[in-house]
Design a protein around this nucleic acid. Sequence first.
DNA 1: TTCATTATTTAGACAAATCTAAAAATTTAT
DNA 2: ATAAATTTTTAGATTTGTCTAAATAATGAA
Lengths: 217, 217
Amino acid sequence: MQSYTEENYLKIIYHLSEISNPVLTNAIAERIQTKAASVTDMIKKLSDKELVNYVKYQGVTLTEKGKTTAINIVRKHRLWEVFLVDKLNFKWDEVHDVAEELEHIQSNLLVERLDEFLDFPRVDPHGDPIPDKNGNFAELAFIKLSKLKPTDKGTITGVSEHSSTFLKHLEKLGLTLGKRIEIIEVLEFDGSVELLVESQKTNISREVAKHILITKN
Amino acid sequence: MQSYTEENYLKIIYHLSEISNPVLTNAIAERIQTKAASVTDMIKKLSDKELVNYVKYQGVTLTEKGKTTAINIVRKHRLWEVFLVDKLNFKWDEVHDVAEELEHIQSNLLVERLDEFLDFPRVDPHGDPIPDKNGNFAELAFIKLSKLKPTDKGTITGVSEHSSTFLKHLEKLGLTLGKRIEIIEVLEFDGSVELLVESQKTNISREVAKHILITKN
DNA sequence: TTCATTATTTAGACAAATCTAAAAATTTAT
DNA sequence: ATAAATTTTTAGATTTGTCTAAATAATGAA
Ligand SMILES: [Mn+2]
Ligand SMILES: [Mn+2]
Ligand SMILES: [Mn+2]
Ligand SMILES: [Mn+2]
C-alpha cells in the first residue's frame, strides 16, 4: 500500500512520462509544487519499493507495478469526475480539485460499483479516456483544433488544458464537449481561428485552439 | 483547516462525550488505537487551536467550534454511508470503513449536492440520525429492544453496534431496519428474548437485544 | 576544451504524529 | 490517612515528508 503522497508522485510521473521519458527531477518538482531535493528523496523511496526505475542524474521511469498503480489512480480520478458532473451537477471546471482528493480513497469495491453506477463511461468530462479495471484505455483519435484547415468539420471531444479559467472561457464561447464545429479561416498574422459553432461564428486565439481536441467527422 | 488526524480526534471526542463528559485520555486512546501519551500530545494541539477545552488530568470537552467541526464530519460520514447503500448497493456492514475515508473529503459543495442527490436522508443505513447543514439532528425516539416487555410491538429503526460481524448476524436473523417485531417472552435465566419477526419466531441473546433499537408503534 | 550555467544530489534541519519509558498526579483500597 | 494501583503527563526518540544550503554532476558557450 502506498501513502497519499507516494500515490501523487506516481500519478505525476505517469503523466509526465507521456511527454518525456525518463522523467526529470525538476519536471516533477515543478508539477508537484515542491523542491528538487524533496523529489530526489521521494524518488529514492519509490525506487526502494520498486515502483520506479531510477538512475542518478538521468531521471525516473515507472516499473510495471508503478504504472499499474498510477493508472488505477487516473481511473479513479476520472470516474469521480464523471460522478460529480453526471450525478451531482458539478460544472466541468469545478471537479478537478475534489477528484484530486477522491482518487485516493482505497476500496476496489467502491471503484467497480461506481463504474457500474455511471454505466461504464469511456471518457471523463474533459474528454480524457478512462482506463478499464485492467488498465486498458480505449483508443481515441483526437486532433488539435489548431491543426485543422478551412472547411474541415468535426466534433469537440476533449481539451488538453484543465484550468478553471480556460474551461469557463470555453463555456462562454459555447465550445463544450459534443459541439460540432467547422473551420472558416485561419488568420495569417496571429494564427487565430475563425469557426462556426452551431451556426454561430466565433474567433478563438491560436493558444485556445491548441487546447481543443477534435474528432473529425 | 484541520488535518485528517485532527478531524478523527474531534469526531471520537464528540462520540465519547455522549457517554461521559469530560472525555478521558484513556477513553480516546482506546477508541483511536493509540497510546495515551500520543493522545495527550494531540489534545494539547487541539486545545491550542481552541477546538477543545482541556484541563490536565481531568479530560477534554469540545468547544463550540470543535463541536461544529465534529458534527460536520459525522454528517459527511453518514451521508456517504447512505450513498454507498442506496446508490452503489453496498450492504450495511460494508460501508463503515469506506465512509471513514470519505468523511474527510473537503468540499462543502460536494456535501450539499450529495445530500440533495440522496433526497435529504434523515438517517443512515444503521438508523443513526444525519445532522442537517446547520448541525441540527432530528429527534428520534429509540428504545432498546432489551427494554421491551411481552406483547410490545414495534419497528426496528436502528442499531447501536456497527461491527460487521454483528450486522451480518442480524441480517441472517432477518432483523434489518424497517422490520416489524413483537416480543413473545423474555427468558428469566439469561435475559434472552423470544420474538416474532414477520410472523417468524426467533430467539436472540440479551447482548444482541441491547444493540437493536426499536420505535414503538 | 575550458569555463560558466544549470540540474541534481547530499547533508543537515524541521514539523507532524506517533512511540517507549519514566515521572507525576489521581483514585482506590486497606 | 497511608500505601498501592491506576491514569495521565513529560521526556526523549522515530518516521514521514518537507525545507535550505552546499556539493557534485551534466550541459552549453566561447
Ligand atoms: Mn482532473
Ligand atoms: Mn479530467
Ligand atoms: Mn459508520
Ligand atoms: Mn452509520
